[in-house]
């Protein structure tokens, strides 16, 4: 995995194939995604300084832009590629993760809260743990598309399973949130509710993405 902290040399990018650029882009986006998850974990631990640092990193980092530009120039020039449309769609779906992550980071930075109790914290941490798992799974699946679609499809099945578990936790958390005895400040309630829902929005995108990978496997693999 190439370190994303610095700009990647244009010459290196030019030498890369479309598949290599996709994998590199996935690495870049996954790295930012993990930073986002880590940042939210800092919020749960009430470490606001690190929370801000991580989320600002997600918003400010744009190392992936150079990869995106190179990918686009390459794919539009490529003539002899029958899977061009799917490659392009795949790349855009990766880019959507960045967009959701950025949206989530901006929203979470608007305000900061102290979590109501240890149980609530634990449940949120469980969701974040699952999000980290599916984010890494997705990264693996995307990187396997070029070499082993069958394996990528199996990983996507794991993503869907993990996302199902997250959904159960989400309902438990929302239930807890709506039924607290203490009267919350409305913005704290709103913040926590949106935190849960937006984290799940990211999880849903990853799940939809994994279904797309499964569609690609069905489309391109020939079983006998």
């Amino acid at each position: 995995m190439i370190k994303m902290e610095e700009e990647i040399d244009d010459k290196i990018l030019s030498k890369m194939s479309i598949d290599e650029l996709t994998r590199l882009f996935m690495d870049a986006i996954n790295e930012q995604n993990l930073k986002l998850i880590e940042g939210i974990e800092h919020l749960v631990e009430e470490n606001f300084k690190e929370f801000k640092k991580n989320l600002t990193y997600v918003i400010k980092t744009n190392t992936e832009v150079a990869i995106k530009k190179k990918f686009e120039s390459k794919i539009f020039k490529s003539k002899l590629m029958f899977s061009k449309a799917d490659r392009l769609k795949l790349f855009n779906k990766i880019n959507d993760i960045k967009n959701i992550g950025e949206f989530l980071a901006n929203k979470l930075l608007l305000y900061m809260v102290v979590f109501p109790d240890e149980e609530f914290k634990l449940q949120i941490q469980n969701i974040l743990k699952s999000l980290r798992i599916i984010s890494n799974y997705l990264s693996d699946a995307v990187k396997l598309i070029g070499s082993d679609l069958s394996k990528a499809r199996d990983i996507c099945e794991d993503i869907k399973e993990e996302r199902r578990r997250m959904r159960k936790t989400e309902w438990r958390l929302l239930d807890k949130l709506y039924n607290y005895d203490m009267d919350y400040l409305s913005r704290t309630f709103l913040y926590l509710k949106e935190l849960i829902e937006n984290v799940m929005m990211l999880a849903d995108h990853i799940k939809n993405f994994s279904e797309y990978i499964q569609f690609l496997a069905t489309k391109y693999l020939i079983f006998e």
Partner: peptide, 26 residues
């Protein structure tokens, strides 16, 4: 199709391999 699928196409695992072989098929 059955013969080509059984002897060749079903053995292609990833999109890179499939794309490469389809380039020759072109």
């Amino acid at each position: 199709f059955k013969i080509i699928a059984k002897t060749y196409l079903s053995k292609l695992k990833g999109l890179n391999q499939i794309e490469k072989s389809e380039k020759y098929f072109k």
